[in-house]
Simulated scan of single mutants.
Amino acid sequence: MTDDAYLFLLDDPAVSLGVPPAAVGELACMETPAVRAWLDAQGSTPTAPELRLLPPEETGAVPEGAERLPLPLSDEELSRVRRRLVPESPAGLEEELLAFRDCADGRDGLIGRALAAGVPPHRIVELTGVDPATVTAAAGG
């Protein structure tokens, strides 16, 4: 087993092997001259759908003959890669959806109170991230 993660290219981007680097977030190594040169040589980009990443303990799964590049990742970066490899549970997603519902409950009332207090609509859009049409609808409701 190697201590390095591997960046590699799949023939078929629909294969669910590894993690797309873009899904992991910022990786310091992706901007290094070595990685840039490797990507250029492969005719690829950091966001290409066929570009994948596996942690050291999973590098045996890299397909035979696949173009690959060893990457030294920090402990925090490796942790993010490993978390993305674990499928998200439906129960966890349902909990997030319930929390979102609870958070969004009463949104229109809050927007209406803010408008009544004199907060300009453009500022409500900036603060909440809601669509301007939502602010307009809340003003009428």
Rank of each mutant, 00 (worst) to 15 (best):
S16H: 13
L93I: 14
A66L: 01
R80S: 06
R82M: 04
L69S: 03
G112M: 05
W38C: 04
Q42F: 04
G43E: 07
P90R: 11
V62T: 06
Q42C: 11
R123W: 11
G109T: 09
V15N: 08
E77Q: 10
L54M: 07
E88R: 14
D75E: 15
I124V: 15
S89L: 13
E64Q: 07
P121K: 03
G25T: 05
G112S: 13
A91H: 10
L110M: 11
P132R: 03
A37T: 13
D105E: 15
A23S: 15
V81P: 00
E96V: 12
W38I: 02
H122T: 13
L53S: 00
S44V: 04
L53D: 00
E57F: 02
R52P: 04
L115I: 09
A104P: 02
G65D: 03
V86H: 09
G65P: 05
P63K: 01
A117H: 12
V81L: 03
L73A: 07
C29Y: 07
G92Q: 12
P63V: 00
R101D: 12
L115E: 10
A114C: 05
S79C: 13
V86D: 10
A41W: 06
A22W: 10
T32E: 11
L51E: 05
A48Q: 04
A23M: 11
R113V: 05
V125G: 01
R107I: 12
V19L: 06
G25Y: 03
R107Q: 14
D108W: 04
G43M: 08
V125T: 05
A23V: 04
P72K: 15
S16F: 07
G109P: 00
E26I: 10
A61I: 00
P46H: 07
S74G: 09
V119C: 03
F100S: 15
L54F: 07
V125S: 03
E88D: 10
E31M: 10
L98W: 12
L54C: 09
V81R: 02
G118Q: 04
S44I: 02
C103R: 15
E31S: 15
P55M: 06
R123N: 09
A61C: 08
E96T: 13
E58M: 11
R80N: 06
L71I: 00
